[in-house]
Design a protein around this nucleic acid. Structure first.
Lengths: 343, 343
DNA sequence: TTGAAAGCGCTAACAA
DNA sequence: TTGTTAGCGCTTTCAA
């Protein structure tokens, strides 16, 4: 069923039908009702391609995912974020176009998406320090919002981020308050902006409390269970082992927990484990709580906010960058997570 | 830069330029070279929307994800599958359009995507028993491939699946060979076809070995760490506790492991834990191995195969359903996974 | 308040 | 081997 067919059916011109359907004010109320009824009855849907060509708007948002960033695509956080975006797009009649590219082709992918003109804007995932994509997109003149920020980038840009620095400062203070002095940090890859900020937050709190940061007790890498296990095992074997672990992910925390047990220590009794596995900043212990459940709604909310911001920018043809900084919520688990340091 | 502008620039008609660029054979070699050079020099990219409208092909594949299926979108397996599809789409110049809908609106979403005409085909995720989507898509006449199968659906349809039944039969036999008689099954939600098949494989092997299936040792639910922990804890507290656990997911297995330890037993010494956490069917132990690493390449491969099958069907205008059944690979971990039963 | 006509950028018959 | 001419289905001036 095309617009033309519908128009013929009604004895109207395609123009009028188009106007009626798209809410133009000059249409007679009765006509509009007739048109709406007919469209409904015949299950009419305007052809997207034609609409796009005629209006010049793609009604789609692009997400480019470099595949070699393993911790990105596989991360459940990513899936939930995407789900949040999708909700908003669906509401507003936008499509979500995902492009999966090998790492090296990322720049080309953006350029291609741009010149093919099949999206009206983009969401940038997993910003790194000095991330080149931001300058590229700015230069290309395509509206975009970054999920996260990129330290080192001078050009202004729009972003939605959680206050990672502060979240880790508070987590560290929390452990210090329990009496811990040798606190280990199991971080994500510090090329990633979020991980760099978390480390900064950690170091800041340590410095303020007059605690020494032992480089041997800081590790950065893929946030897997194996990472937590290996790192914790090595640290616990040192002459001055840590009494508390702060990790960037629940998976790492589970690995840490296993290493602690393997060393004959009781997590939550002799060793503290605290983790932050949520881009909206929940802090919880890594033991009794189910994996991947507490973090999900908040990450999805971040996705919604990114999407909403971008769609608003597009609708208003706005160029001025916007920001949204979400504060972390401190949630502390009970059973086998944090504990006071033993005398 | 439009086709027309490029043509004017070259003193050719748009048609010739189009033909040259799209590899039609009747174009003079020299002309083709000139056109190609000019296109490159001016960084010409054909407008996708126009192409779509003119050809009637959307050059896009749709994936509809119902959001309430939590174990679907959040599952890392899902992300990797999508990544596999994306690789193929990128190669062939297709876009991937993701639609996230509330569970209830799923049928409507398909209908809408269809009538808006913005995809040439669809991939169906996470088929359930008697899944209604298959009949719906068939009726709509849109080419589609199901990732998995749906027991109870009579209409023929195209699918790519792993042999879940056989994988679980073999895993159960493996445990039986180690001498286990009380084997527990921690399964996914059995509305999902894959989980139903896994259970069938388990029960089949038990029957063949003359082992009794204790209903109290079978559990189905969300495949989380908590599920594994709770289920195993309850089972281990029974008068006749299991000596081996077979789980549908690595996360569940980790929970089981924790419960086993909590019960004062040593996993891999006094209790066997074997898991299948891979839609291509790896079996491995749930302990020493990093989470979410072994499974990933194979799930991605499944994505590639689905995508390839669908694109071929579209290209050939083929209606006949195709199938691809992938055999499971049995990989057994070393350290703290399976063990012979203790006398 | 409605309609006619042109055009978005491309492809595809048909002619030359 | 190239060009002419019509669309694809919709929106959008401009007239009526």
């Amino acid at each position: 069923m095309t617009l033309k067919e519908l128009a013929n059916l009604l004895g109207l011109s395609p123009t009028t039908v188009s106007r009626a359907l798209n809410g133009y004010p000059e249409v007679n109320a009765e006509t509009r009702a007739r048109v709406a009824a007919a469209a409904l009855a015949h299950n009419y849907r305007p052809n997207t391609q034609a609409k796009r060509l005629a209006t010049g708007r793609a009604m789609a948002i692009g997400h480019v995912i470099p595949i070699s960033i393993r911790h990105e695509i596989v991360n459940p956080v990513f899936a939930d974020f995407i789900a949040g975006c999708g909700e908003i797009y669906a509401q507003q009649g936008y499509d979500m176009v995902l492009t999966i590219v090998p790492d090296a082709d990322e720049a080309r992918a953006y350029r291609e998406v741009r010149s093919k003109g099949n999206v009206d804007g983009m969401i940038v995932h997993g910003p790194r320090l000095n991330d080149p994509r931001i300058a590229q997109l700015t230069e290309m003149g395509l509206p975009f919002v970054v999920h996260g920020r990129a330290m080192g980038v001078e050009t202004p840009y729009s972003w939605v981020d959680v206050n990672n620095t502060r979240a880790f400062t508070r987590a560290t203070e929390f452990l210090a308050d329990l009496g811990h002095r040798r606190i280990a940090l199991i971080n994500g890859i510090e090329e990633m902006d979020f991980a760099a900020r978390r480390r900064r937050g950690f170091e800041r709190a340590m410095a303020e409390r007059g605690l020494e940061v032992d480089p041997a007790l800081m590790v950065a890498g893929e946030m897997t269970e194996a990472q937590g296990y290996d790192a914790a095992r090595a640290m616990l074997a040192r002459p001055a082992p840590p009494t508390a672990f702060l990790t960037s992910s629940l998976l790492s925390a589970m690995g840490v927990r296993r290493a602690v047990e393997a060393a004959g220590l009781r997590p939550g009794r002799e060793v503290s484990i605290v983790t932050h596995d949520d881009e909206l900043g929940f802090l919880k212990n890594g033991a009794e709580d189910p994996v991947f459940t507490a973090t999900r709604s908040s990450v999805r909310e971040a996705g919604r906010r990114c999407a909403r911001m971008l769609l608003e920018m597009i609708a208003q043809g706005e160029r001025a960058p916007r920001h949204e900084l979400l504060e972390a919520v401190l949630v502390v688990g009970q059973s086998s997570g944090p504990c006071p340091v033993r005398p």
